[in-house]
């Protein structure tokens, strides 16, 4: 699917998310110096190159991140945030940068079961953590009703902040499968939508909860949603 083939269904979007996850490299394809572009076979060689050629710069580090169930060995500069590594090294663009400083929730991922702001976390601190992004949520059938209800209720306009809301909602439902409307609003209060869709999220999540627990809502059941 090309970048602009955008008329999407739940099925096609999930498939595209799955393809993105499948394309995440398990190991770096190329080990190149981020400063001069010279290529190396190992991280050790790159570190030695830094010591020799760029002694005033901090050498890239290596870490294995577990993202969406896949272990990815990565080499990146130690000042890179998790958000940057997800985008530049793993091709995951669902975590969005909006505020630069952990004030808007657009970059939310789930780390060890808790919502975390990926623009505020150094990637080097994430080794050994279980990281879920919106792409990972999109491929799990259980969460299709949540995505579907967001789309049914236009709980998005421009859609830039939407993945952040959805990840926070999933984290809430992991811990509290039957939240009240106030609990939903409280959980989502760290996510900013500048299009003003705030009132629409609760409705989407409450209906998703009903569908996920086996009820039919407006004639929709979990199996119908699953079939796209």
């Amino acid at each position: 699917m090309s970048d602009n083939q955008v008329r999407s269904t739940l099925k096609s979007a999930s498939e595209q998310a799955a393809a993105t996850i499948a394309a995440m490299p398990a190991k770096p394809k190329i080990i190149a110096c981020p400063l001069c572009g010279r290529q190396f076979l190992t991280h050790t060689e790159l570190t030695a190159h830094y010591a020799a050629e760029h002694p005033d710069s901090v050498a890239p580090v290596t870490a294995t991140l577990n993202v969406n169930g896949k272990n990815c060995e990565l080499i990146f500069e130690p000042f890179m945030t998790l958000k940057q590594v997800l985008q530049y090294h793993l091709g995951l663009i669902g975590a969005k940068e909006m505020c630069d400083r952990g004030a808007c929730g657009s970059c939310t991922v789930i780390m060890d079961g808790r919502p975390a702001l990926s623009c505020n976390i150094l990637a080097s601190e994430c080794e050994g953590k279980i990281i879920e992004t919106v792409e990972g949520i999109a491929v799990i059938p259980k969460w299709k009703p949540l995505i579907d209800r967001y789309c049914y209720w236009d709980a998005m306009q421009c859609g830039y902040c939407t993945p952040g809301f959805l990840v926070t909602a999933k984290a809430l439902l992991d811990h509290n499968p039957n939240p009240t409307e106030h609990e939903i609003k409280e959980a989502l209060s760290g996510n900013i939508c500048i299009c003003g869709t705030q009132p629409r999220h609760s409705q989407a999540i409450l209906e998703a909860v009903l569908i996920m627990s086996g009820h039919a809502v407006h004639g929709y059941t979990a199996s119908e949603v699953d079939n796209g």
Partner: peptide, 13 residues
């Protein structure tokens, strides 16, 4: 649902 809503919600847009 919007023509691109699913792509937006799943972060692939």
């Amino acid at each position: 649902p919007g023509l691109t809503s699913y792509a937006l919600a799943t972060g692939v847009a």
